[in-house]
Amino acid sequence: MRALILVDIQNDFLPGGALAVPEGDRVIAVANALMPRFPLVVATQDWHPPEHGSFAANHPGRTPGEVVTLAGLQQVLWPMHCVQGTPGAEFADGLRLGPEAHVFVKGVDPAVDSYSGFFDNGRRRSTGLGEFLRARAVVEAVVLGLATDYCVKFTALDALSLGLTTTLVEDGCRGVELQPGDVAAALDAVRAAGGVVRGSADLLG
């Protein structure tokens, strides 16, 4: 079985959001076009408590973009975003997630961030997504969403590490690009790990 994994298509990552990804709203139409083509659709959702350690506001004197150590790992500090129960954490209004879509929350532990939809950044805790896909005999994952160079990249890499044939939909993603070239490097990392990068037209054709 194939599964479509929609990564963090949430209001705070769209233009005008707390952590807006440039052109992040462009991924919505791609997601909507692809969903009917898949027997299984899952969506990941950043769901941070307000005291989350990845928020610059919780580190006095620090600003977004700085790097600190969190849970023994290097951590980029971000503006407060996708806080549990806030409008910014909700899925984009135009995203046509049906009642059959399955949602997996991540980033709930204030002590460690979770870019991947499968595990936290230290791979210490599973979101349950891998187990869910395994129980349904999923062998192929198609991944898109926000942002290419963080949560999409790590979701795709973890899917590959779990033995899933993995495709990243390039035009269904947009990146943060804290450093120029971060998006290209993310795509290269997925290819190097055995993944495929394709356009949505290839999947819709």
Rank of each mutant, 00 (worst) to 15 (best):
Cys82His: 02
Asp188Trp: 07
Leu168Asp: 03
Pro79Val: 08
Thr166Val: 10
Ala135Leu: 10
Pro87Arg: 12
Gly122Thr: 10
Val138Trp: 04
Ala101Arg: 01
Asp188Cys: 09
Tyr150Glu: 00
Gly181Pro: 02
Ala141Val: 15
Val142Asp: 03
Glu177Leu: 02
Leu133Pro: 07
Asp188Glu: 15
Ser161Leu: 11
Thr86Val: 08
Leu144Pro: 10
Phe119Ser: 02
Arg123Phe: 04
Gln179Leu: 13
Met80Ser: 14
Leu146Met: 11
Leu162Phe: 09
Arg124Glu: 11
Leu97Asp: 04
Ser126Gln: 14
Lys106Trp: 01
Gly199Thr: 01
Leu157Glu: 09
Val169Cys: 04
Thr127Lys: 02
Gly194Asn: 12
Thr127Cys: 05
Ala189Cys: 13
Val138Met: 06
Glu90Arg: 15
Arg174Phe: 04
Val197Lys: 02
Gly88Asp: 06
Val169Ser: 04
Gln84Pro: 05
Asp182Tyr: 05
Leu95Tyr: 06
Gly98His: 06
Arg124Ile: 00
Thr165Ala: 15
Ala92His: 09
Leu162Asp: 08
Leu97Arg: 07
Val190Cys: 14
Arg198Cys: 14
Leu97Ser: 11
Leu162His: 13
Asp109Lys: 10
Leu95Met: 06
Val143Ile: 15
Gly163Pro: 04
Val103Met: 03
Gly145Gln: 06
Asp120Trp: 12
Arg96Asp: 13
Val196Gln: 13
Tyr150Gly: 00
Glu100Gly: 02
Glu90Thr: 10
Gly122Cys: 08
Thr127Asp: 01
Val197Asn: 06
Arg174Gln: 14
Asp109Tyr: 02
Asp202Arg: 11
Phe104Gln: 10
Pro110Gln: 01
Glu140Ser: 12
Arg125Trp: 00
Gly145Ile: 07
Leu187Phe: 15
Asp113Cys: 08
Pro110Gly: 07
Gly195Glu: 09
Ser161Trp: 05
Gly98Asp: 12
Phe104Arg: 13
Ala159Trp: 06
Glu131Met: 07
